[in-house]
């Protein structure tokens, strides 16, 4: 049963195979790595380096998938395509704002989960 609104840890629980220390390690890694990647993406956007935006979006997909943020995974896929193929790049700034907001919402719930573990 999922107790959260933005994250879903069902998959991570499957991957953890009952190992709570591993689960904690994965969530902590997410909390450190993902904001860093978002910060790098922001710089890339400011520099109009859309290819780099696309590459970072590609990397972020797996991270968001681990915490069950499926709609954010789809958003990353769109940003990846836009960035790497340089299609509709004018939409990237709005997508980035949405991505950043989603991350913040997810991080709050992950923080809750880490306090329980």
């Amino acid at each position: 049963m999922n107790n959260y609104q933005y994250i879903n840890l069902e998959y991570l629980n499957e991957v953890a195979l009952g190992n709570q220390a591993f689960k904690k390690e994965m969530l902590e890694t997410f909390c450190i790595k993902t904001p860093n990647s978002i910060a790098q993406m922001e710089i890339a956007l400011q520099n109009q380096d859309y290819e780099q935006v696309g590459k970072i979006a590609h990397q972020l997909k797996t991270s968001f998938a681990f915490v069950g943020m499926d709609s954010t995974v789809e958003l990353c896929k769109k940003m990846q395509d836009m960035g790497l193929k340089k299609n509709d790049v004018h939409l990237l700034p709005d997508c980035f704002i949405l991505l950043k907001n989603n991350l913040l919402l997810g991080l709050k719930e992950i923080d809750n989960e880490l306090n329980i573990l």
Binding site: V15, F22, T29, F30, T62, F66
Partner: peptide, 9 residues
Amino acid sequence: EMFLKSVQH
């Protein structure tokens, strides 16, 4: 890093 840890685990 997350995928690496999970595959290794």
